[in-house]
Design a protein around this nucleic acid. Structure first.
Lengths: 201, 201, 201, 201
DNA sequence: TATGAATGAGTCTTCATTCAT
DNA sequence: AATGAATGAAGACTCATTCAT
């Protein structure tokens, strides 16, 4: 009984949190992060201003929370992919990028936020240093590919990792080409691979 | 005489402006754009707060001004390079990227600012939409390369342009690889070219 | 039966009220009156926030209630002492001070609260003007002592009353002397009665 | 010249600071410290809200500043008095109390503030622990009096110091007796020195 | 032209209080 | 009666911008 009530409350609370997050992202997209006020977010969510602080400590906290969630989501996907490595490393990279891309594509703006956010240290939720979140993963996979003879050895893995991350980024934020995200990504991967392959078929 | 005085005044004024700009960039790097106040900039410049408004209309104006200057600088270099097109398109792209990169490398932070700045419309100086500043140029050169048979035809020029811009960006902001900017850039261009070349030598 | 239930309910209600009061005093001591929030009090009491308002109208109300209770307690003691006046007035004063002191000593902080509280008029429970609560009593006893020839006539009773009250206060809040409350009080009463001079001219 | 301008500015600034302080004290007296808002203070001073923060970091800071000033003032007076010790210790105590009293009497409310202020540690200006500011001084003088044979030895100096401080306090805040501050103080000192008994046994 | 104190609009943040469950 | 999420009024504080000197 009590459980039922508590459960309902939990659910309700979670709903409210989501409402705030979605409103926030909506307004962020419209006005930009720094130009968005908490009042605006809560008006959009049709909630009182004070309610914000029942769920987040600050605006920064909110963004950090959103991003952390997305990163976790993405990392989970990557873990799954790495567990059953069927194809060659290049295929793994493609799959990873498509997975991560999908996660962020739902809300493209978040990627921009993710890139630009300067952590000031006040946030309670930890965001790892930007580039390194996925950087190590890419570098690892590249090294694997080098060992397997699929990738060239005359280019440092870290540089390739940077490039892969750049591809991800530019595909997600790309918007004027009239090409879908996954198409865009595939084109860029084509460029990437046919350059790093040791030999072309 | 009057001319001499005016000249001195001109020079003096320009000196003050530069002092403000340099102080601003310094503080931006330390604290981030939004966290930097005009008071701080002017303290760093060892000038009175009010003096700021003799040179710029607002903080946004200041950044816009800085960036515009850099872009103009870069575009001037590109124009010069395009006027005397000696080598193949790939060489032109390399030279352009190195030139632009150099301009922004002096102040890497500016690139970050350039990427993240959202125009809110209050600025008097116009900054063109981010990606497109150099995007068209890259696309043009790529098309030229396609016509000359150096570049593959199965990938849209716009996508390649995005990729080139991404390379520029990631090279400028790269910092943990221990590789110099131009080395980093060359590696990435190698990846780019040996992927897009119709055939590998 | 109905009576029994009502009694139990009464008792239960009283228990909750006491729990709130004790938690409040505890937090007041730790953080100060103004810095204490109702949420904190109720967390300390392990009760829901809303429950507070089933017992008190406001935070001010709570404090006022606490203090009033203590004052009533003290006044009751004084009445009893005055009813059976066996010794000389000086002894009565000593006994009164010791009694009041004991009441407040259990919770020294309450005395500080009692001293500093400014009534803003919103409270439903009335607290009489600070100094006067016991001031009149002291002045009365002093006058009695003057009539009986025990106390000097060249000093106004009100001034002595203020001084007695000051003794009470400073004894209750004293903390660094390493002397117990009642010892401290006795020393001060000695001064009050006899003075600090080795001999009186 | 420049000096003249700077000097004028300095003077102006000092005037504004005083205006704020006086307005603040006025409103504090009327409404109490915690009930006073910065807006109210600045309205009373006929200045913009923001101006407050050109002079003080917070409301606490302001009070701390006021009190520190008064304490310094009082301590300076005490030093002067101790340098030329002509009469007996009792006389020195009287003079010290009258001096301190005068300092705080101009603004009686400040003494109350001084007593009640709970330092939360955020203030930039340091206030020494309340009782001890003058406590040591009183204890010292009392010990001197004991050595000289003027004061009794069967009461600890610290207790007497507390009592003296209590006298100071109760005289400053006393208000209903219709007796002037210095008269009030003299009566209490008389009690302190001689006691209230008609004769000592 | 340089200055820097004054300004107040704009934000964040807190918290007593309410109320549906 | 107990609960705790929702609320918004209230207050602290910031800072771009103005303007008298």
């Amino acid at each position: 009984m009590a459980n039922g009530t508590a459960g309902r409350r939990e659910r309700k609370k979670s709903e409210v949190r989501d409402r705030i997050i979605n409103s926030a992202l909506k307004v962020f997209v419209e006005k930009g992060f720094n130009e968005t006020t908490i009042v605006e977010i809560m008006e959009e969510a049709d909630l009182g201003t004070g309610t914000f602080y029942n769920y987040f400590q600050s605006k920064e906290d909110l963004v950090t929370y959103c991003i952390s969630e997305k990163i976790s989501e993405a990392q989970l996907l990557i873990e799954k992919l790495k567990e059953k490595p069927t194809g060659p490393p290049s295929e793994l990279i493609s799959k990873i990028l498509l997975s991560i891309g999908k996660v962020f594509e739902e809300n493209r703006y978040l990627m921009g936020l993710f890139m630009q956010l300067r952590r000031t240290g006040q946030s309670t939720v930890e965001i790892p240093p930007h580039n390194n979140v996925f950087g190590d993963i890419f570098a690892d996979v590249y090294k694997l590919g080098q060992e397997k003879g699929q990738f060239r050895n005359d280019i440092p893995g870290e540089v390739v990792a940077e490039m892969i991350f750049g591809i991800l980024q530019s595909s997600v934020v790309s918007g004027n080409t009239g090409i879908s995200f996954s198409e865009n990504l595939k084109f860029k991967l084509k460029i990437l691979f046919e350059g790093v392959f040791t030999k072309r078929d």
